[in-house]
């Protein structure tokens, strides 16, 4: 198996001609995923942006075997494919789910949990654009605190809960491999994808994927936001590998939140005290993360 890296990506394109918005982070991650995994890949995409923009008859934008799953059932459809691969003794067929945050953290969480519990040999990628973008920017349980959506128009109602922690939810299933990644860090993402495809069991990648249309940012801000979300500490790059959590990038100090928040209209209107609250929440998250890292590193079970 050739190692996946930026330099090793083939020229072949497996995601072209789609109807995504300019600068779409999700479609960039999907394009990388297919380039890296290649022609034998079987991919399942539930209802959402990527299925809406990729499979409108007669325009088939994906170049591999691909299928739209019912919104709530990505994990189940992946299992069905994996079961036949097992039954027929087929090898080297990556089975990939590519679902948005709504299809993962909300309506598809049960089905994902089932697939993780069954220890299917699948790669489940959640591209997280932090709201229901395909239906017109409605709040999901992955919408960060303070973000405006069309169903949290002031941004205040989105303070109700903090963003669901999908990595911990996946790790709590005891699966071999789970990681976070960002569209701003392609080398890190591709390394994790490479690790995921070598895992004999389920792996889960939670990837930060800006949506210029839904976030109110410039179409060329996608990758820069994918970096500033990491330097501000809002999106820690993490790896859960066989019972141990590893913090891939632990900045000594965080960049000011404004470097990430200011380019996005969805955060416009946040008061100074609310931004302080976001920073405090981030700091608590990092304390917990570091504790988690110590705990799993020292664990005799790990």
């Amino acid at each position: 198996m050739k190692k996946i890296s930026i330099k090793m990506l083939p020229d072949d394109e497996y995601f072209v001609g789609h109807k995504g918005c300019g600068g779409c982070g999700g479609s960039l991650i999907l394009r990388w995923t297919l380039k890296a995994l290649g022609e034998r890949c079987h991919i399942v995409i539930p209802a959402g942006c990527m299925s809406a923009i990729g499979f409108i008859y007669p325009q088939m934008a994906l170049g591999v075997n691909a299928m739209i799953a019912p919104f709530a059932a990505t994990g189940a459809v992946l299992s069905g494919i994996a079961a036949v691969i097992r039954a027929k003794g087929l090898t080297d067929i990556p089975v990939v789910g590519f679902a948005g945050d709504g299809a993962t953290a909300d309506i598809g969480l049960q089905s994902l949990s089932g697939a993780l519990d069954r220890r299917e040999k699948i790669i489940y990628i959640c591209y997280d654009n932090e709201a229901y973008m395909n239906t017109g920017i409605q709040r999901s349980s992955a919408t960060p605190q303070g973000a405006r959506t069309t169903t949290s128009p002031s941004g205040q109602t989105a303070f109700a809960g903090s963003k669901k922690d999908l990595l911990r939810i996946a790790a709590a299933h005891g699966i071999p491999y789970a990681a976070t990644a960002s569209v701003g860090h392609p080398a890190d993402f591709l390394r994790k994808l490479d690790r995921a495809r070598q895992i004999d069991g389920p792996s889960f990648l939670h990837v930060f994927a800006p949506c210029p249309t839904g976030w109110g940012c410039a179409t060329d801000a996608t990758t820069e936001l994918g970096r500033s979300v990491v330097t501000t500490g809002l999106w820690p790059l993490l790896e859960w590998d066989h019972g141990k959590i590893r913090i891939n990038q632990a900045p000594h100090s965080f960049a000011p939140l404004a470097t990430y928040l200011a380019p996005q209209a969805r955060f416009r209107g946040l008061e100074a005290n609310q931004i302080e609250a976001l920073a405090a929440e981030r700091d608590r998250t990092w304390v917990a993360l570091r504790a988690w890292e110590r705990e799993t590193t020292n664990s005799v079970l790990a």
Binding site: Y14, V16, G17, K19, G22, Y57, P58, Q59, M60, A61, L62, G63, V64, N65, A66
Partner: peptide, 17 residues
């Protein structure tokens, strides 16, 4: 059935930009 050959593109996106 509702299926088609993968990668078969019928329309250009050139008028999007």
């Amino acid at each position: 059935s509702p299926q088609a050959d993968s990668g078969h593109l019928a329309f250009s996106n050139k008028d999007w930009r």
